[in-house]
Amino acid sequence: MARFLFWNLGGLVDHRTIVPLLQDGRFDVLVFAECEFDPELLAFDLSQSGARSYAPSVGATIRLRVISALGEGFIREVYSNATGRLSLRRIRLGAGEIGLAVVHLKSPVGNWDTRELDGEAQRVATELWQQADLAGLEHLCVLGDFNLQPFDYGLSSAHGFFGLMTKESVRIGERTVQGRRFRPLYNPMWGCFGDRTAGPSGTFHLKDSSPLCYDWHMLDQVLFSEGILPLLVDPGTILSELGGQTLLDAKGRPNRQYSDHLPIAFELNLPTGDVGNQEQ
């Protein structure tokens, strides 16, 4: 099984804060946004103190950091964009090959309104498919902090990431809208909202005085293309604990000692074995 974790670390400066949380070696690929420390340090400390050997996966995008136990030959960046908000990697495990796209879209804090954020999501989604096609990556996992909710236009519309809420909707395949063909993605995070599911009600908590305030937000998400669906073991879980430590404060919200976001994880039925130590 291949286990992936994404975590927006909210500008965490000291990597040692999260070493105890990750040293059990449960995850094969660790992806971080807003990571203010050198990922080499985290990989080194995890390898020294933990169960597995980790190394940074080299990438041009500083905004998004990837540490992997898979070994350089098995995970390699094939594309990064100018703003560092999109990085695409090729992962080879067993006979399979998948694309791991990591995104960190623009934050609504600033001078961008919702329409502009949706427009940015459209552009990044188009860019992603263009580059995935160029790299010959048909099967995609798209992971990251989208700074949009699953129901926002940029995430859910065919012009954007086209993230639908059921596998069945995605299995139907491409859709044609006004002559253009669009490939849908399965977004399991639709099913993680609120308190009627196991785990926290979202990945980020922000309460303000505006009339439309959800309190919990699902900014961190993972989406899958149709070809990944048969591989899904855990399609997406919001983690409230790591390494036996709770990530929540006394109110049940993200403990800012670690980050203002909670991590998300998913698991694919791909053989990892000891690939990090294999010769290529």
Binding site: A60, E77, V78, Y79, S80, N81, A82, T83, R115, E116, G119, E120, Q122, R123, T126, E127, Q130, Q131, L134, A135, H159
Partner: peptide
């Protein structure tokens, strides 16, 4: 060129030919 509802974007993508690696330098 990528398009969205409000704009077009040209990306200046550098390709490392030997590695088939692409990186957008600016937009």
């Amino acid at each position: 060129v990528t398009t969205s509802d409000d704009r077009h974007v040209i990306r200046f993508v550098a390709v490392v030919v030997s590695h088939d690696y692409r990186s957008t330098i600016f937009e």
